[in-house]
Structures are given as structure tokens and as C-alpha cells.
Amino acid sequence: MMAYTQALFSAGIIFTVLLAVAALYCLLFSRNLIRILIGLELLTKSVTLLIALAGHITGHMALAQTMIITLIVIEVVVIAVAAGIVIGAQRHNQSLDVRMLRNLKG
């Protein structure tokens, strides 16, 4: 029974790694600022799943839940501020393309 449980959670960790790979690919190869934020959000999802898996395996689910809640709060604040920055950049440059962000000097 324990081997079955460990196999299940090993599968969970493999799926978490695959989701993180997809998110990192999105972060690296996207040129749209909003899509980069979506990649960041997906990466956070994989981290959330990893924390939940760790909590479930070790039996410290209450601690894992508090950490997930803290992570969600930080995630929301980061996305809200980043969305504001994206809207400001779009108004300034008339584009969401990261290659157009060349006026950060001075």
C-alpha cells in the first residue's frame, strides 16, 4: 500500500516538473508581456502543487496549506502590480512586445 502511495506521488512530482517545463518555455519564448505573466502564473501553479504534494506525503498538510495561502496572497499582489506595469508600458510604447521596451535609460 505504501509503495502504491509513493508511486502515485512520484507521478505527481513528475507532472509538476512537466508543468514547470511548459511554464518556463512560455516565460523564455514569449514576446507578449501578458503572456509572460501567464507563464509566471503557471510556474506558481506547479510550485503550489509541489507544496501540496510535500504536505500530503509528510503528513504536515496544515503547514502546507498555510504556505499555499501565503503563496496565493503574494501571487495576487505580484500579478496586480505587474498588470499595472504592463498597461503603463502599453500606453507608453503602444505595444506589448518586449522587444519594444528600449526606453528604460535615464
Partner: peptide, 19 residues
């Protein structure tokens, strides 16, 4: 091979208490 530890015998259960 994930050498994962077994659940602890006496762990906290109430998320409110932990939080």
C-alpha cells in the same frame, strides 16, 4: 526513487492553529 519519509506520528492537524 523518492525516498520519502513516512507521515509523522504526531503532527498538527488544524490549519487554523498553524496559521
Amino acid at each position: 526513487h523518492l525516498d520519502l519519509p513516512l507521515p509523522a506520528a504526531d503532527v498538527e492537524r488544524d490549519v487554523r492553529q498553524v496559521f
